[in-house]
Write a protein that binds this DNA or RNA. Structure first.
Length: 352
DNA sequence: GGGAATT
DNA sequence: AATTCCCAACGCGGC
DNA sequence: GCCGCG
């Protein structure tokens, strides 16, 4: 989804919805005063606290900040120490939004940034703490896309991502089923995988990695995993870039592992109707959900900003950071081997 | 959402 | 003073 | 070459 998308026919800009204003004859609806917030000794100004970021279900900026504060303990570990790319929707998620890499101007002095030079130098936000998270929320940041690598070694990702994107009429159910079949295959390669709901139709598998490979190597490896899955389940899996050629299969998007590419963080909301959230699952839940969700449920929404605000954040993956794995690279994979053109592009060996 | 550039 | 602009990016494959 | 794609 591009951040500039908008819901068909919903051009109405988000408007201030009076906060009740029990106003018996009181002053004419005062333009909502900026809210003052303090967190961990940092002070924050929040304009338009009652603006609706999502209309259905209704989520005001104020409620959104409460959500972020609530999930912060579980969310921050996935943002901390990484360059952050965000999408922002200052007019609400039904109005156009935009990607932002460069740190928004006017940041408080205590917001950490890091400048990385690719084609051009970019000063990224590094969201290490609650005040920074809330400041981003106050800036109408809706999606959090941390780099796959930490600032200390930005070109040595410490996780790989397998993005399972079911093409309608397939839906979450089918993505969960594929993940369940992928799991033993990955385990056979010594790769524990951690699943999360994308917040859209699909599922993301995170594979904790020893940070010794560059983005290209990781991307090549995940592509070869996709090819393996494609050979094994040709009717269920596709690696096609062109939507028209994907058919009713699960698109395995390995390109998300490339240089400078990002994946939406755990607990990041999505700028879609329903205020869905990308949510970490335990494998038992993957199995349970696969059994519960109706087939072809390509619109299934499980967890939302309001539901998590109400019920609490749940839990995180356990053991992720202890599981960092080496990639089972065949000899020569990813290394310039003088004259040693190996066949097959380095597919992982597969216990068939 | 807000700073900068443009009218 | 008011309005508009700007906020990523890049390679790959199909045509 | 341009477009769509993520």
């Amino acid at each position: 989804m591009g951040p500039t998308e908008r819901e068909a026919g919903a051009a109405t800009p988000a408007r201030e919805r009076g906060t009740g204003t029990a106003g018996a004859g009181s002053a004419p609806a005062a333009p909502a005063a900026p809210l003052r917030l303090a967190a961990e000794g940092r002070e924050l100004r929040v304009t338009h606290p009652d603006r609706l970021l999502w209309r259905d279900p209704p989520v005001t900026k104020r409620a959104y900040l409460a959500y972020l504060a609530r999930v912060a303990p579980l969310m921050l570990p996935w943002l901390r120490g990484r360059p952050l790319v965000v999408t922002r929707y200052p007019g609400g998620v039904e109005a156009p939004g935009f990607y932002q890499k460069e740190t928004p101007a006017g940041r408080p002095a205590w917001v950490r940034t890091v400048t990385l030079t690719g084609r051009r130098p970019v000063r990224y936000v590094v969201c290490d703490d609650l005040p920074t998270l809330l400041w981003l929320g106050s800036q109408a940041v809706v999606e959090f896309h941390p780099w796959n690598a930490p600032v200390e070694h930005p070109h040595r990702p410490d996780w790989a991502v397998i993005d399972l994107d079911p093409q309608p009429p397939l839906g979450l159910r089918e993505a969960l089923e594929l993940a369940l079949d992928l799991r033993p295959l990955l385990a056979g390669l010594g790769l524990p995988a951690f699943p999360k709901l994308s917040g859209g139709r699909g599922l993301h598998l995170f594979l904790p990695l020893e940070p010794r490979y560059d983005e290209r190597e990781v991307q090549r490896f995940v592509r070869s995993l996709g090819e393996l899955a494609l050979r094994r389940w040709p009717g269920r899996v596709t690696l096609e870039r062109a939507v028209a050629r994907r058919g009713a299969r699960i698109y395995v998007d390995f390109l998300q592992n490339g240089p400078g590419r990002t994946m939406v963080a755990v607990f990041s909301p999505r700028p879609r109707p329903g205020a869905p959230v990308s949510f970490p699952l335990a494998w038992e839940e993957v199995g349970r959900l696969a059994a519960e969700i109706p087939t072809d449920s390509h619109r299934y929404t499980l967890l939302t900003v309001p539901s998590l605000l109400e019920a609490g954040a749940g839990r995180a993956w356990t053991g992720f950071w202890q599981a960092r794995s080496p990639l089972p690279l065949p000899p020569g994979h990813g290394r310039q081997e003088p004259g040693g053109a190996q066949r097959g592009g380095g597919s992982p060996s597969c216990p068939t």
